[in-house]
Nucleic acid binder design. Structure first.
Lengths: 197, 197
DNA sequence: GTCTATACACCGATAGAC
DNA sequence: GTCTATCGGTGTATAGAC
């Protein structure tokens, strides 16, 4: 592959810059809220002028899109590692897995809003950015099926219970654990419902 | 009360205008999304110029605030009527009540975002607008306590289950009923958990 | 009192010089 | 690739007509 290193340098340099921009965007989202991100602020955080961002992203939505993919990819990696040391007991595995997702969402509200809610007007993730979230969901389906839970409705009920605890925690007790401490109990409630041992 | 009719005319006229503005704001929210409301658009819908809105509301946030109070007041009225013909059976009552809230939220996503999520940056409802939502929550507490459910954690679990179904329905199957048809089952699951007959 | 006209600072986005 | 200049739009605010 002669000559390809030069392309790699350029590509890598570009990727580094994109990564720095995304990092600045996350900082801005955590500081002022996801919807309150401004290109001027993000640019200033990386020492650029606002229009220069357009050399790396086609639009503000493209930044949101990359952030969406990044967040789900990050959680996908966490779950991939977690999967190898998951308890054999269905209930214990349910509790460990749901706790991981709960903590991931609750520790960064802006990230959760982007991942799980549709609060950016007219923003729909691109297929590439959507892919890692599909991987996470398919892994959940597979894990549940190994415990004998195969009905779509059963999986939907599971996601609803976890999503509800996360949303209530963030909306009504941010920084606390009023709903977080209900998580294990909620998983037992679900396990009873779908007949898990 | 001589002379008071004049005051009433003025007050009523003002209230009518405020009501029309709010109605236009709801239309705009449903058309373009809650966060995408613009004062110029709202004003145009009621045949005004944008600055004229400041004669009726102190700021855009004041409009959101009034919308928040209006939405919860409306649901408070619905529940007040519903309460008189609630089934005696705890499980049936749970299903009827949760269905009412679910439908109210799902039929108007913009309203749900305003009522239950915190997606408008720096917006916190005023005490007056917050009051009707407290009334709704206290009614739920009272109804549950009549069934013997008195623990705060039990009430929190209930709100989380319903909130989760609503959020998943709106985020992943808007316009459908993929999570809506799980509502009765979820209420049975909850009733089992808290030991309701 | 209510409206129109106008202004300000900021936003996302684009054009074009270098 | 990065900059300056600029566009149309936004929330917000005030001055002043009627």
């Amino acid at each position: 592959m002669l000559g390809s290193p030069i392309v790699d340098w350029q590509t890598k340099r570009r990727e580094v810059a994109r990564s720095e921009i995304l990092s600045a965007a996350w900082d801005a989202a955590r500081d002022n809220g996801l919807a309150a991100i401004t290109l001027r602020d993000v640019a200033a955080r990386v020492g650029m002028q606002a229009p220069s961002l357009y050399s790396y992203f086609d639009s503000k939505h493209a930044i949101y899109d990359a952030m969406f993919g990044q967040a789900w990819s990050e959680y996908d990696e966490i779950e991939k590692e977690l999967e190898e040391r998951l308890p054999a007991s269905p209930r214990a595995a349910l509790k460990v897995g749901s706790r991981a997702f709960f903590e991931f969402c609750v520790t960064d509200p802006a990230r959760h809003q982007l991942m799980n809610l549709r609060l950016i007007p007219n923003f729909t993730p691109s297929p590439e950015s959507y892919a890692p979230s599909v991987r996470v969901f398919e892994r959940l389906r597979r894990q549940l099926s190994e415990f004998g839970v195969t009905e779509d409705a059963d999986v939907d009920l599971m996601t609803a219970v976890i999503a509800g605890l996360i949303d209530q925690q963030l909306a009504n007790d941010p920084g606390g654990d009023r709903w977080g401490r209900l998580l294990d109990r909620a998983m037992d409630m679900y396990a009873d419902q779908v007949g898990l041992p």
